[in-house]
């Protein structure tokens, strides 16, 4: 079993941090193989930034993602830049507050208002990346949300642990609220 992700957003949204946390969760606590790479240099400065994460039950060779099973876009800029990476039949998750101009093609689209949820709960969008990890863990069976909780507890300052755990649960609930029928069509297992 192997899943390939591209997580993208505008610099500062934490997409790359999310990739790192996802990799660490699966490799350190999840008993799986994980590889994470990210854009560097001019590509990573200003504008859209992306990270590639692969998680697998067997060893991973080629470390980049050519055909993502899931492409996440947290901003319009990231969507515009990376939508060409989406794979037919793959899933595209986007923040429906930030990404307005969406063209439906031959991939599955899931728009969730992670921005709005973060604003109403925390009055801040700082936790949008962790919320996104909650969404992913609910959709991709290979990602155990408990492993992400462990990374949050180990990586974050004590004062930030609780708020990030809540953001993770918020993401999980955003997916659950869609109803079982819709979620079952999106699930990767």
């Amino acid at each position: 079993m192997k899943y390939k992700f591209i997580l993208s957003g505008t610099g500062g949204q934490g997409a790359i941090t999310a990739g790192l946390l996802l990799g660490e969760a699966t490799a350190t606590y999840g008993n799986l193989f994980a590889v994470q790479t990210q854009s560097y240099g001019p590509e990573a400065r200003g504008g859209a930034a992306r990270t590639d994460v692969i998680i697998s039950s067997s060893k991973i060779h080629y470390p980049k993602v050519m055909y993502p099973d899931v492409l996440v876009c947290l901003s319009q800029e990231a969507y515009n830049k990376y939508i060409k990476m989406a794979t037919p039949g793959g899933l595209v998750i986007y923040d429906s507050h930030n990404v307005k101009n969406v063209k439906i093609k031959d991939y599955k689209m899931l728009g969730l208002d992670m921005f709005g949820a973060c604003m109403s709960e925390f009055n801040s969008v700082q936790m949008i990346n962790i919320c996104m990890l909650g969404v992913l863990s609910e959709i991709v069976e290979l990602i155990d949300p408990e492993t992400i909780r462990m990374v949050i507890r180990n990586r974050f300052k004590p004062s930030l642990i609780d708020i990030n755990l809540r953001a993770l649960d918020m993401g999980i609930n955003l997916v659950r609220e869609l109803g079982e029928e819709k979620v079952s069509k999106l699930k990767l297992q």
Binding site: L20, G23, E24, A27, T28, F33, A34, V35, Q36, T37, Q38, Y40, I60, P63
Partner: peptide, 10 residues
């Protein structure tokens, strides 16, 4: 090389 130097894995 740049790839393995910047890549993260377990």
């Amino acid at each position: 090389d740049e790839v393995i130097a910047h890549m993260r894995e377990g």
